[in-house]
Protein backbone atom coordinates (compact mmCIF):
# COMPACT_ATOMS: atom_id res chain seq x y z
CA UNK A 1 0.00 0.00 0.00
CA UNK A 2 1.37 3.38 -0.98
CA UNK A 3 1.57 6.30 1.43
CA UNK A 4 -0.88 8.06 -0.80
CA UNK A 5 -3.47 5.33 -0.39
CA UNK A 6 -2.90 5.32 3.32
CA UNK A 7 -3.56 9.04 3.47
CA UNK A 8 -6.69 8.66 1.36
CA UNK A 9 -7.89 5.95 3.67
CA UNK A 10 -7.16 7.90 6.81
CA UNK A 11 -8.94 11.00 5.58
CA UNK A 12 -11.96 8.96 4.48
CA UNK A 13 -11.80 7.28 7.88
CA UNK A 14 -11.80 10.65 9.62
CA UNK A 15 -15.18 11.44 8.07
CA UNK A 16 -16.45 8.01 9.06
CA UNK A 17 -15.22 8.83 12.54
CA UNK A 18 -17.43 11.93 12.62
CA UNK A 19 -20.41 9.76 11.71
CA UNK A 20 -19.52 7.00 14.14
CA UNK A 21 -18.90 9.34 17.05
CA UNK A 22 -22.11 11.29 16.46
CA UNK A 23 -23.91 7.97 16.49
CA UNK A 24 -22.04 6.67 19.56
CA UNK A 25 -22.68 9.78 21.65
CA UNK A 26 -26.43 9.26 21.50
CA UNK A 27 -26.08 5.49 21.78
CA UNK A 28 -24.15 5.88 25.04
CA UNK A 29 -26.58 8.14 26.74
CA UNK A 30 -29.93 6.75 25.58
CA UNK A 31 -28.84 3.17 24.76
CA UNK A 32 -30.34 2.93 21.31
CA UNK A 33 -29.01 3.19 17.75
CA UNK A 34 -30.06 6.60 16.53
CA UNK A 35 -30.75 6.11 12.83
CA UNK A 36 -32.23 9.61 12.65
CA UNK A 37 -28.58 10.67 12.56
CA UNK A 38 -28.56 9.75 8.86
CA UNK A 39 -31.40 12.20 8.28
CA UNK A 40 -29.46 14.88 10.14
CA UNK A 41 -26.54 14.36 7.76
CA UNK A 42 -28.73 14.54 4.66
CA UNK A 43 -30.47 17.68 5.83
CA UNK A 44 -27.29 19.46 6.86
CA UNK A 45 -25.53 18.46 3.65
CA UNK A 46 -28.23 20.32 1.69
CA UNK A 47 -28.25 23.23 4.14
CA UNK A 48 -24.48 23.42 3.73
CA UNK A 49 -24.95 23.51 -0.03
CA UNK A 50 -27.46 26.35 0.27
CA UNK A 51 -25.05 28.20 2.54
CA UNK A 52 -22.16 27.74 0.12
CA UNK A 53 -24.25 29.14 -2.74
CA UNK A 54 -25.38 32.02 -0.56
CA UNK A 55 -21.94 32.95 0.75
CA UNK A 56 -20.27 32.51 -2.65
CA UNK A 57 -21.46 36.02 -3.49
CA UNK A 58 -18.94 37.43 -1.05
CA UNK A 59 -16.48 34.71 -0.27
CA UNK A 60 -14.35 32.16 -2.05
CA UNK A 61 -11.69 29.57 -1.28
CA UNK A 62 -10.99 28.71 2.32
CA UNK A 63 -13.28 31.38 3.85
CA UNK A 64 -16.19 30.09 1.77
CA UNK A 65 -15.39 26.55 2.77
CA UNK A 66 -15.21 27.59 6.43
CA UNK A 67 -18.51 29.48 6.23
CA UNK A 68 -20.15 26.42 4.67
CA UNK A 69 -18.89 24.13 7.40
CA UNK A 70 -19.92 26.48 10.18
CA UNK A 71 -23.40 26.93 8.69
CA UNK A 72 -23.89 23.18 8.37
CA UNK A 73 -22.60 22.62 11.90
CA UNK A 74 -24.98 25.25 13.29
CA UNK A 75 -27.83 23.75 11.34
CA UNK A 76 -26.86 20.37 12.75
CA UNK A 77 -26.99 21.76 16.28
CA UNK A 78 -30.45 23.19 15.67
CA UNK A 79 -31.71 19.99 14.07
CA UNK A 80 -30.31 18.14 17.09
CA UNK A 81 -32.28 20.35 19.46
CA UNK A 82 -35.50 19.95 17.49
CA UNK A 83 -34.98 16.20 17.24
CA UNK A 84 -34.46 15.82 20.96
CA UNK A 85 -37.48 17.93 21.86
CA UNK A 86 -39.82 16.44 19.27
CA UNK A 87 -38.81 12.83 19.04
CA UNK A 88 -37.21 11.76 22.28
CA UNK A 89 -37.93 13.96 25.30
CA UNK A 90 -41.42 12.70 25.94
CA UNK A 91 -40.60 9.05 25.64
CA UNK A 92 -37.56 9.59 27.81
CA UNK A 93 -39.49 11.27 30.58
CA UNK A 94 -42.07 8.49 30.45
CA UNK A 95 -39.36 5.83 30.82
CA UNK A 96 -40.59 4.18 27.64
CA UNK A 97 -39.10 0.92 26.33
CA UNK A 98 -36.24 1.03 23.83
CA UNK A 99 -38.49 0.08 20.93
CA UNK A 100 -40.16 3.50 21.14
CA UNK A 101 -36.80 5.15 20.61
CA UNK A 102 -36.14 2.97 17.59
CA UNK A 103 -39.45 3.76 15.99
CA UNK A 104 -39.12 7.43 16.76
CA UNK A 105 -35.59 7.66 15.38
CA UNK A 106 -36.34 5.75 12.20
CA UNK A 107 -39.46 7.85 11.63
CA UNK A 108 -37.54 11.08 12.07
CA UNK A 109 -34.81 9.82 9.74
CA UNK A 110 -37.34 9.05 7.01
CA UNK A 111 -39.10 12.36 7.62
CA UNK A 112 -35.92 14.36 7.13
CA UNK A 113 -35.01 12.36 4.03
CA UNK A 114 -38.45 13.02 2.58
CA UNK A 115 -38.36 16.72 3.34
CA UNK A 116 -35.18 16.87 1.30
CA UNK A 117 -36.73 14.75 -1.46
CA UNK A 118 -39.68 17.13 -1.77
CA UNK A 119 -37.47 20.16 -2.19
CA UNK A 120 -34.48 18.79 -4.00
CA UNK A 121 -35.02 15.44 -5.66
CA UNK A 122 -35.73 16.66 -9.18
CA UNK A 123 -32.47 18.49 -9.63
CA UNK A 124 -28.94 17.22 -9.48
CA UNK A 125 -26.89 19.20 -7.00
CA UNK A 126 -23.26 19.24 -6.11
CA UNK A 127 -21.08 21.47 -4.03
CA UNK A 128 -19.26 24.30 -5.80
CA UNK A 129 -15.59 23.84 -6.42
CA UNK A 130 -14.09 25.63 -3.45
CA UNK A 131 -10.49 25.73 -4.64
CA UNK A 132 -8.61 26.25 -7.90
CA UNK A 133 -6.02 23.80 -6.80
CA UNK A 134 -7.13 20.21 -6.50
CA UNK A 135 -3.93 18.46 -5.51
CA UNK A 136 -1.29 19.56 -3.08
CA UNK A 137 2.15 18.14 -2.51
CA UNK A 138 2.96 17.38 1.07
CA UNK A 139 6.21 15.69 2.09
CA UNK A 140 6.70 14.59 -1.52
CA UNK A 141 3.30 12.92 -1.61
CA UNK A 142 0.47 14.17 -3.75
CA UNK A 143 -2.75 14.41 -1.84
CA UNK A 144 -6.13 15.63 -3.00
CA UNK A 145 -6.91 18.95 -1.36
CA UNK A 146 -10.38 17.84 -0.29
CA UNK A 147 -8.85 14.80 1.39
CA UNK A 148 -6.45 17.01 3.27
CA UNK A 149 -9.23 19.37 4.36
CA UNK A 150 -11.41 16.46 5.43
CA UNK A 151 -8.60 15.12 7.54
CA UNK A 152 -7.75 18.47 9.12
CA UNK A 153 -11.29 19.62 9.85
CA UNK A 154 -12.61 16.26 11.00
CA UNK A 155 -9.72 15.71 13.37
CA UNK A 156 -10.14 19.23 14.70
CA UNK A 157 -13.85 18.68 15.32
CA UNK A 158 -13.13 15.39 17.09
CA UNK A 159 -10.36 16.95 19.20
CA UNK A 160 -12.74 19.68 20.31
CA UNK A 161 -15.33 17.06 21.18
CA UNK A 162 -12.82 15.08 23.26
CA UNK A 163 -11.81 18.26 25.01
CA UNK A 164 -15.43 19.00 25.87
CA UNK A 165 -16.05 15.43 27.05
CA UNK A 166 -12.95 15.15 29.20
CA UNK A 167 -12.23 18.69 30.33
CA UNK A 168 -15.54 20.42 30.91
CA UNK A 169 -18.35 20.03 33.40
CA UNK A 170 -21.00 19.35 30.81
CA UNK A 171 -18.69 16.70 29.31
CA UNK A 172 -18.37 15.04 32.69
CA UNK A 173 -22.15 15.14 33.02
CA UNK A 174 -22.54 13.52 29.60
CA UNK A 175 -20.21 10.73 30.61
CA UNK A 176 -21.79 10.31 34.04
CA UNK A 177 -25.27 10.15 32.54
CA UNK A 178 -24.03 7.53 30.06
CA UNK A 179 -23.23 5.29 32.99
CA UNK A 180 -26.26 5.81 35.16
CA UNK A 181 -29.06 8.32 34.69
CA UNK A 182 -30.58 8.07 38.15
CA UNK A 183 -27.33 8.44 39.99
CA UNK A 184 -26.37 11.36 37.77
CA UNK A 185 -29.67 12.99 38.74
CA UNK A 186 -28.78 12.43 42.39
CA UNK A 187 -25.62 14.48 41.77
CA UNK A 188 -27.77 17.41 40.66
CA UNK A 189 -27.36 16.83 36.94
CA UNK A 190 -30.34 17.85 34.86
CA UNK A 191 -31.03 15.02 32.37
CA UNK A 192 -32.92 17.26 29.99
CA UNK A 193 -30.03 19.68 29.71
CA UNK A 194 -27.37 17.00 29.43
CA UNK A 195 -29.25 14.99 26.81
CA UNK A 196 -29.88 18.20 24.89
CA UNK A 197 -26.16 18.98 24.97
CA UNK A 198 -25.45 15.49 23.65
CA UNK A 199 -27.81 15.95 20.73
CA UNK A 200 -26.25 19.33 19.97
CA UNK A 201 -22.79 17.77 19.91
CA UNK A 202 -23.98 14.88 17.73
CA UNK A 203 -25.78 17.35 15.44
CA UNK A 204 -22.66 19.46 14.97
CA UNK A 205 -20.62 16.38 14.06
CA UNK A 206 -23.44 15.29 11.74
CA UNK A 207 -23.38 18.69 10.06
CA UNK A 208 -19.65 18.60 9.41
CA UNK A 209 -19.93 15.01 8.18
CA UNK A 210 -22.85 15.97 5.94
CA UNK A 211 -20.77 18.59 4.11
CA UNK A 212 -17.87 16.20 3.57
CA UNK A 213 -20.14 13.42 2.35
CA UNK A 214 -21.80 15.92 -0.01
CA UNK A 215 -18.43 16.96 -1.39
CA UNK A 216 -17.24 13.39 -1.73
CA UNK A 217 -20.29 11.77 -3.25
CA UNK A 218 -22.45 14.58 -4.70
CA UNK A 219 -25.82 15.22 -3.11
CA UNK A 220 -28.81 12.91 -3.11
CA UNK A 221 -31.60 12.54 -0.54
CA UNK A 222 -30.42 9.10 0.56
CA UNK A 223 -26.97 10.41 1.41
CA UNK A 224 -27.74 9.83 5.08
CA UNK A 225 -27.72 6.09 4.52
CA UNK A 226 -23.96 6.37 4.74
CA UNK A 227 -24.68 6.25 8.48
CA UNK A 228 -24.04 2.54 7.87
CA UNK A 229 -20.35 3.38 7.63
CA UNK A 230 -20.49 4.88 11.08
CA UNK A 231 -22.32 1.82 12.33
CA UNK A 232 -19.73 -0.56 10.86
CA UNK A 233 -16.94 1.53 12.34
CA UNK A 234 -18.64 1.40 15.74
CA UNK A 235 -18.94 -2.38 15.57
CA UNK A 236 -15.29 -2.77 14.61
CA UNK A 237 -14.19 -0.30 17.27
CA UNK A 238 -16.59 -1.43 19.99
CA UNK A 239 -20.16 -0.15 20.24
CA UNK A 240 -20.49 2.56 22.82
CA UNK A 241 -16.85 3.59 23.01
CA UNK A 242 -16.03 7.02 21.57
CA UNK A 243 -12.34 6.27 21.20
CA UNK A 244 -13.16 2.85 19.81
CA UNK A 245 -15.43 4.42 17.20
CA UNK A 246 -12.59 6.68 16.07
CA UNK A 247 -10.13 3.81 15.76
CA UNK A 248 -12.71 1.64 14.00
CA UNK A 249 -13.51 4.43 11.56
CA UNK A 250 -9.91 5.04 10.53
CA UNK A 251 -9.38 1.30 10.09
CA UNK A 252 -12.52 1.11 7.98
CA UNK A 253 -11.39 4.01 5.77
CA UNK A 254 -7.99 2.45 5.13
CA UNK A 255 -9.55 -0.94 4.60
CA UNK A 256 -12.01 0.39 2.04
CA UNK A 257 -9.39 2.27 0.04
CA UNK A 258 -7.15 -0.79 0.03
CA UNK A 259 -9.94 -3.16 -0.95
CA UNK A 260 -11.13 -0.88 -3.73
CA UNK A 261 -7.70 -0.86 -5.30
CA UNK A 262 -7.28 -4.59 -4.74
CA UNK A 263 -10.65 -6.04 -5.76
CA UNK A 264 -12.51 -3.10 -7.26
CA UNK A 265 -15.25 -0.83 -6.00
CA UNK A 266 -17.99 -3.34 -6.86
CA UNK A 267 -16.91 -6.13 -4.57
CA UNK A 268 -15.20 -4.13 -1.83
CA UNK A 269 -18.42 -3.58 0.20
CA UNK A 270 -18.96 -7.34 0.33
CA UNK A 271 -15.62 -7.80 2.03
CA UNK A 272 -16.33 -4.94 4.40
CA UNK A 273 -19.59 -6.55 5.48
CA UNK A 274 -17.90 -9.92 5.91
CA UNK A 275 -15.34 -8.29 8.16
CA UNK A 276 -18.05 -6.60 10.18
CA UNK A 277 -19.99 -9.84 10.58
CA UNK A 278 -16.80 -11.58 11.64
CA UNK A 279 -16.32 -8.97 14.31
CA UNK A 280 -19.90 -9.37 15.53
CA UNK A 281 -19.42 -13.13 15.75
CA UNK A 282 -15.90 -13.40 17.05
CA UNK A 283 -15.37 -10.21 18.95
CA UNK A 284 -18.62 -8.37 19.64
CA UNK A 285 -16.85 -6.05 22.04
CA UNK A 286 -14.86 -4.70 19.12
CA UNK A 287 -11.24 -3.67 19.24
CA UNK A 288 -11.82 -1.23 22.06
CA UNK A 289 -12.50 -4.17 24.34
CA UNK A 290 -8.74 -4.32 24.83
CA UNK A 291 -7.26 -1.04 23.71
CA UNK A 292 -9.61 1.33 25.45
CA UNK A 293 -11.58 0.24 28.43
CA UNK A 294 -13.46 3.35 29.27
CA UNK A 295 -16.88 4.02 27.94
CA UNK A 296 -17.62 7.63 27.28
Amino acid sequence: MSIQQLLNGVSLGSVYALIAVGFALVFNILKFSNFAHGGVMTLTAYIGLAASLFFSRWLSGLPLFGATLVSAALAGAIVGIVLERMAFRRIRNNNSPVIYYFISSITMGILMENIVTIFASSTFYSYPKFFELSVVELFHVNIALTDLLMLVFSSTALMILLWVLYRTKIGLAIRALSFDVNTANLMGMDSNRVVMATFIAAGILGGVAGVFLGINYTLYPQLGQLIVKGFIASVIGGLGSITGAMIGAVLLGVLEVTLISAVGAGIAPVFVFIIMLTFLLVRPRGIAGVIVQEKA
Partner: peptide, 19 residues
Protein backbone atom coordinates in the same frame (compact mmCIF):
# COMPACT_ATOMS: atom_id res chain seq x y z
CA UNK B 1 -22.95 2.62 46.00
CA UNK B 2 -23.68 3.32 42.35
CA UNK B 3 -20.32 4.91 41.73
CA UNK B 4 -19.59 5.72 38.09
CA UNK B 5 -17.42 2.67 37.47
CA UNK B 6 -15.77 3.85 34.26
CA UNK B 7 -14.96 7.33 35.51
CA UNK B 8 -11.87 7.91 37.58
CA UNK B 9 -12.05 8.37 41.33
CA UNK B 10 -11.39 12.07 40.91
CA UNK B 11 -14.08 12.41 38.23
CA UNK B 12 -16.56 10.73 40.56
CA UNK B 13 -15.84 13.37 43.18
CA UNK B 14 -16.11 16.13 40.60
CA UNK B 15 -19.46 14.72 39.49
CA UNK B 16 -20.61 14.88 43.11
CA UNK B 17 -19.80 18.58 43.15
CA UNK B 18 -21.57 19.23 39.88
CA UNK B 19 -23.84 21.93 41.31
Amino acid sequence: RKIFAGLTVEENLLAGGYI
